[in-house]
Design a protein around this nucleic acid. Structure first.
Lengths: 157, 157
DNA sequence: TGCAGATATTTTATGCTTGAACGATAATGG
DNA sequence: CCATTATCGTTCAAGCATAAAATATCTGCA
């Protein structure tokens, strides 16, 4: 007897449910960001990272933090620069490197968006009891650990 | 004074954690689908839907089930047809409509992928105790209900 | 009948994302 | 010192995704 079959099916259901929650919510956040601020989620994410680093971030660090490829960041920053929300600055110590930073307009805009964003999340998550929020935080942490372990075991193959 | 702040911050943390779990896992699934079967996740999803409908599905039904736009489906099906995994069939009753269905090769290929997929999920989720899986299924269902309610309340605005 | 509106799909423009290839610069080791 | 190697950012081609406009067909009703 193995415990896989039944367990596997439940895990599959869990994965589908997780994905549908995540997609449902992120689609709604994207919709509202677009409707209220004419901004996309990836742009919002970039601005969120930059907002916590007043001295700016190198492009490589930004792409690592956002877990996306370098080539992706280039285009994202291009558009944010066009809109005057972000500036590129040469690094005096390393001529390969470029640092990006929010402009004053970018920082102001981000603060407005962040306030709205937090309220939206509360609208969407507010139906959960605090206990359930705690449990989910815990269990999702467990899932993350499990997944990271699963990643590594496949690496070793 | 409002009662939001504390709760809102936890909800925000939960949202970020949910998103990072979902992204982590789906990136890994994409990577493996590509490495082992040279297939993308959206293509796999289309094939999964078609596999449960031996008589095929109309494009509109397919886009509704996958919760993506019509225009998206067009290109996805184009590529699957090129690869010989799917066929388009005219509907004799309605000349606007097109039904798509897995070819025999498509069905065979999907069954192989589905087997591997289930094993991958078990690798990634297997670190969770069955109790935790149950709890997550429950709590995520609660989250979904909360989010759907939040969607509707915004509609009414 | 004939036509207004609904429905089914495709097309188009735009943006995000990836992986791979590339050019420029920096760091290292003989 | 110079050649090799590594790092930083960009470019490119391909694919996914959306919203909006276009096309074709169907349906209901006056």
């Amino acid at each position: 007897m193995r415990d896989e079959p039944a367990g596997s099916k439940m895990e599959l259901r869990l994965w589908l449910r997780l994905l549908s929650c995540s997609n449902l919510i992120s689609a709604e956040i994207r919709r509202r960001l677009r409707a209220d601020f004419d901004v996309t989620l990836p742009r919002f994410d970039v601005m969120a990272q930059l907002h916590r680093e007043p001295n700016g971030l190198r492009l490589g660090d930004l792409s690592r933090r956002m877990m996306v490829t370098n080539g992706n960041i280039t285009g994202l920053i291009d558009r944010l620069v066009e809109e005057g929300l972000v500036v590129r600055e040469a690094d005096p110590d390393d001529r390969r490197a470029i640092t990006v930073r929010l402009t004053r307009a970018g920082a102001t805009m981000f603060r407005m968006m962040a306030t709205a964003h937090e309220a939206w999340i509360h609208e969407l998550f507010g139906g959960l009891r605090p206990k359930a929020v705690e449990r989910l935080l815990d269990d999702l942490q467990g899932l993350k650990l499990s997944a990271v372990a699963g990643l590594r075991s496949a690496d070793a193959d």
